[in-house]
Amino acid sequence: MKILVCISKAPDTTSKIAFSDNNTKFDENGVQFIVNPYDEWYALVRALEIKETLGGTVTTLSVGGADYEPIIRKALAIGADDAVRIDAAESDSLYVAKQIANYAKGKGFDIIFCGKETINYNGSVVPGMVAELLDLPYVALAHKIDLAGNTATIMREVPGGEEVLEVNTPFVLSAAKGMAEQRIPNMRGIMAARTKPLAVEAASAADASTTVKGYSLPPAKSGCKYITPENAGDLIRILHEEAKAL
């Protein structure tokens, strides 16, 4: 199996969210970046498991600037064979998808693994766009995949349950919780990652389909009103009369 895993970077979940340049840019000052959890825990690890049982290669692909290198090294430390970075700002989903599709076209990847969504943009968009640009089948929000030859049996969430699908390689998949267990890179992996190939390629031309005009913070909560445990039953009346929530 020749597998491509699309890896994006995301601010650590405990980061303080602040904006600069008149609230038009995310303020990266002091923000620790991590591999987007869906890409790392689920997509990458499952891709590595497939490689370990069936043989093949796992390449990671990221669209982003030089500041991507630490998270790419992390993916290599976890076990990817090699990595590619398309040197471009991640301006919008369609732009990123076009970069990924242009890179993957004609290279014979059997599976393109993505995460369910990025935790900063919360799009769930890039993998479906990649699939359409490459004219490949797409399974979104998958939580289990098994392969027999070039036929994959995949489970994905559907309203009120799950669906079992069969699809032949090549295809694109977005990985949700359940796919795999998180792997912590060990010392050997971290050492090996330093010398694994990381190719940097120029971006292909594409226009920005969307632009961020500005950011704002959600309205602050007015504060918590406390009810004593003895009068816990009053909660229901308050939720009905005051909050109009019941």
Binding site: I119, V212, Y215, S216, L217
Partner: peptide, 11 residues
Amino acid sequence: VFSGKAIADIA
């Protein structure tokens, strides 16, 4: 965006 921690205006 940011898992509900902010709102973006997107053109």
